[in-house]
């Protein structure tokens, strides 16, 4: 992990309240999909803590990364308004997703704003011939993001909305679509990687699929580097640190 300045290159609103930000640094360190950056949200308006945000795209040649986040409070509002300038950040943090050699087919399960980091997994492993079956779930059509990006790199993209309002998608939960495809033998994943809200992980666990499954969890963080023990995740081995022991954990080890 390195402490450096990230230069803000672009800030685009993907939809109301969700922003995609492109950042540059000549000294961008090694990156593993699923890792995150811990970025300063300025020091105005009483802000102290950095914001941990996962990486959507990573371009090692251009030395840029893209992050996608929802505007939720003072920090993300500040970040969303930036048109340029440098921000201090620690990167890349966390363990990230592993796609072991020999894995040929991966099911990616994204829930809402949990979807972006899954893209970086495809970006890294697609060239090796790994096939990605992507399932993204959103509350409604108005909440969908990055569907074109995922469609372009996935073997197959399935989008679900809770209310069925997304025309090109299905009504229901993302885990229902996965269950149907796996049970029907339409998709035979060697590995399942997921990122989304805790209820989605619960539904995934309930499927009891006999496939190694890893999830990326979210937590309120303090230091973001493993020193403060604020971001606890309850596991069968006790409380682990999301920032350094995670954010990726084996599904069966996490107590949901």
């Amino acid at each position: 992990m390195k402490e450096l300045f990230l230069n803000v290159r672009e800030n685009v609103e993907l939809r109301k309240g969700v922003v995609k930000m492109r950042l540059f640094s000549a000294g961008l360190p090694e990156f593993k999909p699923g890792q995150f950056i811990n970025i300063s949200a300025g020091s105005f308006d009483g802000i102290l803590l950095r914001r941990p945000i996962s990486v959507f795209k990573h371009d090692g040649e251009a030395k840029t990364i893209e992050i996608v986040f929802e505007i939720k409070g003072r920090g993300t509002t500040f970040l969303s308004r930036l048109k340029g300038g440098d921000l201090p950040a620690s990167l890349f943090a966390g363990n990230g997703f592993t796609v072991p050699d020999g894995v040929k087919s991966v099911a990616l399960i994204g829930g809402g704003l949990g979807s972006p980091p899954l893209y970086s997994v495809i970006e890294k492993h697609r060239a090796k011939g790994v096939k990605f079956y992507t399932y993204l779930g959103f509350a409604s059509e108005s909440k969908t993001i990055l569907t074109d990006d995922f469609a372009a790199v996935s073997e197959k993209l399935t989008v679900t909305t809770d209310d069925g309002s997304y025309g090109a998608g299905e009504k229901g939960f993302v885990t229902d679509a996965l269950k149907r495809d796996v049970y029907a033998g339409a998709v035979k994943p060697d590995l399942i990687l997921a990122c989304g809200p805790p209820p989605m992980f619960g539904a995934l666990k309930a499927l009891k699929l006999n496939t190694p499954t890893f999830i990326s969890v979210e937590a309120r963080m303090g230091c973001g580097i493993g020193a403060c023990y604020a971001c606890a995740c309850a596991t069968v081995a006790g409380n682990r640190r999301v920032c350094t022991d995670g954010p990726v954990f084996k599904l069966e080890e996490v107590i949901l």
């Binding site: 802000i47 920090g75 937590a219 403060c228 604020a230 606890a232 006790g238």
Partner: peptide
């Protein structure tokens, strides 16, 4: 003895401050 600490969330940002309730996980 080893201590697990409090259940999360354990941290909140307040105006110019940080509120923590880690509970001595060590």
């Amino acid at each position: 003895e080893r201590r697990e600490g409090n259940p999360p969330p354990r941290i909140a940002e307040t105006y110019g401050g940080v509120l923590n309730g880690v509970g001595l996980q060590n």
